[in-house]
Amino acid sequence: MSTAETQERRTPGLVPVAETMRTAERRPSSESGQSEPAGPPVRLASAFWRLLGSELGLTFRRPRNQVMLAVVACVPVLIGIALRIASADEAVGGLIGSVAGNSLMLTFASFSFLVLLLMPIAVSVVGGDSIAGEAGAGTLRYLLAAPAGRTRLLVVKYLNAVVFAYATTVVVALSALVTGLVLFPVGPVTLLSGSTISVAEGLLRILVTVGYVGAGMAALAAVAVALSTFTEVSIGAIAATMILVIVTQVLRAIPQLEAITPYLLPSWWTKFDAVLRSPVDFGSLGQGLLVFGAYILLFGSIAWARFSGKDITS
């Protein structure tokens, strides 16, 4: 509400001395019983992290989200097994074919499969549910009356979605790494450009990929959270986000619309393959990160503008 304009209502100067004495006198009584609260309400610095912790606990303990992470973790295993079987029969080219020669390549192959659909679904569900889910359940009114604070709650909800986006990315990477190590030979990695890097550098590049893909998913989370502030039905926000993802993929596939592809998120998700160049194409990664940042800023602003002034009637 009007916190900004009401903050100045305190009368400066006059009150503090008397107030300090009163507060000091009252303190013991307020600790012994819960009858009269003493002094001004103190905003605790740790409170933000406590709310974020509560949010993360809800997200990661929720069976639905655990199932999504498990499904995402299964895909690299399936890809690994499929490639193992396929590579025994015939030679496969490109990124997929290179997996057979090196365990680390499975991680990149898995990302190229998952980054366009399955990972966005998982992120859309958590992001789209963020505000709409609370509104639909009616818990939003109690959170805001607590008072969680609208901006604070929105930031916590978004950070929670970002953490989930990164968790999804890390789960894919770890699952692919383990599967790769079990099924394929370990050794220096041959890149797309033909040059070879050490295992250690290969792992480092996987780390860079996780950072980049996670940022791409965080940008999608901003879209999902923004849409989530417009409805009280979380499935609506989730579906809207998914439809956006799918529509942008379709737009990318139409050659005549090539001019707009650089503005679409999915175009940049797949650009993680810049780490497979030699040397790493940091220019491309940097551009991608800029696009992600722009999406986060734009949709973060939309979410804030909508949520901070919204009448909560659910």
């Binding site: 509400m1 916190t3 009401t6 903050q7 809800l58 359940a137 009114r141 109690y142 008072p147």
Partner: peptide
Amino acid sequence: LPLADALPRVGALVEGPAFYPYL
């Protein structure tokens, strides 16, 4: 008080209970 300062001292029940069913 300004609303943000007042609300921590206000307990409220608005239009029926609403909680997380799985908790």
